[in-house]
């Protein structure tokens, strides 16, 4: 997760183990009764799962629950996951699906409790609305704010993809984009559609000095 792992010119870095590789190794070792690598994986990948779940519109309590359940599910399915190399994708897909179900259920429950007409937009996984307050407090740097507001002008799925890949290593982009149903190869070796869109928005805003 070090910033240098994004370095497109650091070819040697690509030979290093990615999060996906470490996840595969953790599962294989766990099957042999060694749990250290899996513990490390939980520490490293929990933020990625958290933000995957939050992107489905889950509130913090629900997200907390879904992340835990996803890790517990990995233990329960440790012996039946056919493709250890795809375990990172398995985690992301499992978390995303569980989050989506929890959010949908919450909305149904809320409707039932209030007996209000169905005014919820079905199918739209609304990104959590953090409101203007927290962001203004947290993002003090002008360029951070510009980046954030530009991100929000992208299609929702692009927002989700870019949030997640910003937390991962470059070799993991493929697994991440696949897990959220974006075309494989749409980001990683190339800039990809979403990042290109983000740069177009930023160029419109006239801010060019990002490095």
């Amino acid at each position: 997760m070090s910033p240098t792992s994004h370095d497109p010119l650091g070819g040697a870095r690509d030979a290093e183990e990615s999060l996906g590789d470490r996840a595969a190794r953790a599962l294989l070792e766990y099957r042999e009764g060694r749990t250290d690598a899996l513990t490390d994986l939980v520490r490293e990948a929990t933020p990625l799962l958290w933000h995957t779940v939050r992107a489905q519109g889950a509130d913090r309590d629900v997200a907390d629950d879904v992340v835990q359940s996803t890790w517990a599910a990995l233990v329960r399915h440790a012996d039946t996951i056919a493709e250890p190399k795809a375990v990172l994708k398995w985690l992301l897909v499992t978390a995303r699906r569980a989050a989506w179900q929890a959010v949908r259920k919450d909305r149904t429950d809320a409707r039932r409790r209030t007996e209000l007409p169905d005014d919820v937009t079905e199918g739209a996984a609304a990104l959590p609305d953090f409101g203007p307050g927290p962001e203004d407090e947290v993002l003090r740097d002008e360029r951070d704010r510009l980046l954030w507001s530009s991100l929000k002008r992208l299609p929702q799925r692009c927002q989700e993809l870019l949030r997640l890949v910003s937390l991962a290593d470059r070799p993991d982009y493929k697994a991440i984009s696949a897990s959220i149903g974006m075309p494989v190869g749409s980001i990683g070796a190339t800039r990809g559609r979403c990042l290109a869109k983000l740069r177009a928005v930023l160029t419109e805003q006239g801010e060019a000095s990002w490095t």
Partner: peptide, 16 residues
């Protein structure tokens, strides 16, 4: 979109 990831992309992703 089909261009290689460059330093600006890397900086943007880190900042993001």
């Amino acid at each position: 979109e089909d261009d290689a990831l460059d330093h600006v992309d890397v900086a943007l992703l880190d900042r993001l």
